[in-house]
């Protein structure tokens, strides 16, 4: 029975235009960014990356000396200095752009706003559209309990969230491949520059081949997106209109990024789901905006948000009266 319900939901999602809009946006953005990379490469024929990095390091060190050391951005700058120094010491060009690196970078770049937004667009009308079009009167008067209907919608949304992420990765490779070097999946990557503490700790650095590193980043992004999908489901149940659901999701994503920048001393904001959303960034070594946000904390926090959203969505959906 569940399989039949999921089949119905997938069919409806495919037949609506929304999915193609989402895929179109994904392809367009990846296309523009890869073209930008290509232009950038073409204009730098004789790159001396060692000099470039040394220059950046000097700049960072200057800034750091001129400012109070406890400024919130100082922490992230110090981490970046450690990272660049490490690449320099090991004679590895961290910015050598290749297709595999572009794919890997996509998880971080798209992870904090673009992908959550696209998932919100997909999810926001999965329940509300049935209400807006009046079809909920038929859907809910068949011999299927309401929790099963909502479960089939949630699973469908999770499936398409997964597909969106995979398509993003595949498009990032296919679109960038004509412009950039296509090989390099086994290039070494370095992560975990001990950003939790003030002191650089070389022993905490992990060295992984790029493909393994990319898998981990995509796994974390996948988990974060499932949380976004669960919250989108709740918004779709609450608002009964897809504009309200998309608007709220967009507002919270943007508010989250602004909040972490403008009010770094309001530490309770670390319990907001948007603070924990850029999991791939934290994995790569970007310091989280608030102290005490370890990877485990972020994963548990997102899980708690997803669970709460799903519980609320089911409680509301199975008990409420359906009026016209």
């Amino acid at each position: 029975m569940m399989i039949a319900l999921i089949r119905n939901e997938m069919l409806k999602l495919i037949r609506r235009k929304r999915l193609y809009i989402v895929m179109g946006i994904l392809a367009a953005i990846i296309g523009i960014v890869s073209y930008g990379q290509y232009r950038h490469l073409k204009n730098l024929p004789h790159r001396n990356w060692r000099a470039e990095i040394q220059q950046r390091l000097a700049g960072y060190n200057n800034n750091l000396r001129r400012s109070p050391s406890d400024a919130p951005w100082a922490r992230s700058m110090r981490a970046e200095i450690h990272r660049l120094q490490f690449y320099l010491d090991h004679d590895i060009d961290p910015n050598q752009p290749t297709s595999p690196m572009f794919v890997r970078g996509f998880a971080n770049a798209a992870g904090f706003l673009l992908l959550p937004l696209l998932v919100a667009v997909l999810g926001s009308d999965i329940v509300s559209a049935e209400h807006a079009e009046g079809t909920d009167k038929l859907l809910l008067t068949r011999p299927v309990r309401r929790w099963k209907i909502l479960a089939s919608k949630l699973i469908t949304l999770w499936i398409f969230t997964t597909i969106t992420l995979l398509v993003g990765a595949i498009l990032a490779y296919l679109i960038s491949a004509p412009f950039l070097t296509r090989i390099g999946w086994s290039a070494p990557t370095f992560n975990g520059f001990g950003t939790g503490t003030m002191n650089f700790n070389p022993s905490s650095v992990r060295q992984l081949p790029l493909w393994k590193d990319a898998l981990i980043a995509y796994g974390l992004e996948w988990y974060a997106l499932l949380t976004v999908a669960s919250i989108a489901l709740l918004l779709s149940v609450v608002f009964r209109s897809s504009a309200g659901a998309i608007g709220t999701m967009l507002a919270s994503l943007i508010a989250g990024t602004i909040l972490t920048r403008l009010t770094p001393d309001w530490t309770s904001a670390k319990y907001l789901f948007v603070s924990a959303l850029p999991l791939p960034d934290y994995y790569t070594g970007e310091p989280p905006p608030y102290d005490g946000m370890t990877m485990i904390f972020c994963i548990l926090l997102l899980g708690a948000w997803a669970l709460a959203a799903i519980t609320a969505a089911f409680a509301l959906f199975t008990n409420r009266d359906v009026f016209g």
């Binding site: 409806k12 079009e133 009046g134 079809t135 038929l138 011999p143």
Partner: peptide
């Protein structure tokens, strides 16, 4: 509900699907 077939108010079906797909949708349920 297995004993009931109904139309409540307006006959709203999925407009973006054809008649057969609509019937298949509810037949599957």
């Amino acid at each position: 509900m297995r004993q009931i077939g109904c139309i409540v108010e307006t006959p709203d079906l999925y407009r973006f699907m054809n008649g057969r797909e609509n019937l298949e949708h509810f037949a599957r349920m």
